[in-house]
Amino acid sequence: MNLFKRYFIRRSEPAVGTDLVWTERDGSSKGMFFIRFKRHKLAVAGVFALCVIALCAVLAPFITAYAPTTVTDSFGEGPSWKHPLGTDLVGRDMLSRLIYAARVSLAVGIGAVAISAAIGTVLGLISGYVGGWIDGIIMRITDIFMSFPYIMLILVVSSIVGPGLLNIILILGVLGWPGVARLVRGNVLSIKQMDYVKASVVLGFRMPRILFQHILPNTVAPILIYATSGVALAILDEAALSFLGLGVQPPTPSWGNMLASAQSLTVLLSQSWLWLPPGVLIIITVLSINFIGDALRDTLDPKNNK
């Protein structure tokens, strides 16, 4: 392996003279980004794990032996050659269901957070930077959103618009932004006072450029931290909603409703293949995303160039 690596590196190395220029050029830009990211071993593992899960989810029809809703002739049986992770109490293949469920859970986790982070970031930026009555209005709206009990609101809305994957994503996304908005606004308020923002004004940059190119990059760390923990929460929220019957509707599998359906004492004690795999997958996904978020935060900060 080592020999192989050396051979390859030497082969791909440019001539000595240009090599120097190259390191100078990419000293802290895109080439460096991957080098710095690679230093976070856990994050690299996280990317790998997430890629495997995502790939399985995308290729689900080709790699699963059964459709997720197909009822086989064995009910609640443990792992066997035919069913590597056993079957559930209705007789469906657990492995197939698990892989199909990854689609739902990843879509909910990432989709909902993408929506709420986008809304929250934009509103927070505007609110903090413009200030005045616009700030007042936006902040009062976030107050209103935050003063409702979160889970109740989700229940009411999802019972109105009806359950379903897309609705869940939209609901979690649209209800999740006030936290980000507050976070971003607070950061903007302090960054706005920095001379480099004032310099941007004097240099005649327009507001969108100042907001997105000068202020946003400096507040990306808290947004990333929020977003990574948000993905975890969204996956768990989806599980909770599914448990209450307002999430993704059976027989469509999600990790949440698979866990939820395994919540009886006999299952927990004697049929661990029903709840262990989805639980482990949720943990792996959430951890991966958290590690990636941490690494991104460090990597995106030029000061961490050690």
Partner: peptide, 15 residues
């Protein structure tokens, strides 16, 4: 304008 504090007058995220 040239600012007083050279530490806050340059955006730390930009080369």
């Amino acid at each position: 304008i040239v600012f007083q504090d050279p530490y806050s007058s340059l955006n730390p995220r930009k080369s």
